[in-house]
Design a binder for these strands. Structure first.
Lengths: 209, 209
DNA sequence: CCTACCGATCGGTAGG
DNA sequence: CCTACCGATCGGTAGG
């Protein structure tokens, strides 16, 4: 049913739920609803209807609505961290690694699959502070992937601004694409990633020769 | 009571409410609450308590809660458009004009006063589509200020990426600062604006000479 | 996983 | 601007 070896290995490590299980299907629908209409506007009845059960039945799988949000965020980070590490490792140099990270985050924000990065970014304040602390541990690992590459570019002299500031600006810029980017339009996500590199003055072609 | 001539003139044109009026005070508190906890999480009882009245009394000033959100957005745009036009006109060249826009938007997003740009950005989808259309007319004027400057920089050869894309990336990047920027920290908003210019390769000092 | 239902809270109204 | 209150809807529970 599923032929992605990376995903398969994450499922076996219990880092993400099997997408064919009841829990996996619920989390996928929850991610989509939270992304499209926001956590607050999504009711437990919406969530139940999306997987074809009654609202009361939800609470056999999760104790609270917030626990569903937390699970969506945790699995999203686990999946994205694994995918982005693979993308970074595959790229030959720092320029390539950054572009791979930008593209992967664009895909995660705008993707149709389980990579609901937009939920993680925009619904953060809907999490209780206790849950935020738990998720933050995983987020730090994810952010370290970015910082390693951005600091590498700074050492090469290719990046002049503060890497921490750049990463935070990119977080906002890339997640905001969900409000305006349309996949049906003329520009693909690869083209968008090119534009981001161009904006940062990190395009290979765009450099003075 | 108020000695800002630009604000004074906007009040006389009925483009923004007098901050000392009941309406003005309510809108200022509403902007703060919407920005800090979001529109959905802010109840009409929160709004009423913030100005010291009963919740039912709110509906003498506004017919619905959504109308309060719309009014906050309309007045925010009116105020910001006027302030940013003045900032752009005062700057001597395109570099200076862009930096003035970046700084003004940073101040509006993070400011303590009525410039609640963050509400405009993050609560957009809470507006009905009818209200969105009304606000969009004002937003187009605001965005044209940015596009004039970004297109000017492109013609000078200082900007290589697509101005439309750059503006959208900046919208996300600058509004996102509200989640992490702390005014008490070591970096002021001016320093943050410098970093943005550096990131875009548009810092005067940073250019190859 | 369903039926039946709860206490709380929501935005908003009526009459003064 | 207040008092008193409404119908609807919310997240969540009990018992099967």
């Amino acid at each position: 049913m599923n032929h992605n070896p990376l995903l398969q290995s994450l499922i076996e490590q219990n880092k993400v739920s099997d997408p064919d299980s009841a829990r996996g299907r619920l989390l996928r629908e929850a991610a989509r609803l939270f992304r499209d209409k926001g956590y607050e506007r999504t009711t437990v009845r919406d969530l139940a209807a999306a997987v074809g059960i009654q609202s009361g039945s939800l609470f056999h799988h999760f104790r609270t609505k917030e626990e569903i949000l937390k699970a969506v965020m945790v699995e999203t980070i686990q999946l994205n961290t694994a995918m982005m590490r693979a993308a970074v490792d595959a790229a030959p140099d720092m320029h390539g690694k950054l572009k791979a990270l930008v593209l992967a985050e664009l895909e995660s924000v705008n993707g149709q699959t389980g990579e609901a990065m937009a939920v993680l970014v925009y619904e953060w304040r809907s999490l209780s502070s206790a849950a935020q602390e738990e998720v933050l541990v995983l987020r730090d690992i994810y952010e370290q992937l970015w910082m390693d590459v951005l600091c590498g570019l700074q050492e090469e002299g290719a990046l002049q601004a503060d890497p921490f500031i750049v990463r935070r600006m990119l977080t906002g810029a890339l997640s905001w694409t969900i409000t305006w980017y349309r996949p049906q339009g003329p520009m693909g996500l690869g083209g968008l990633a090119d534009q981001v590199m161009l904006m940062l003055g990190l395009s290979r072609n765009g450099k003075s020769s």
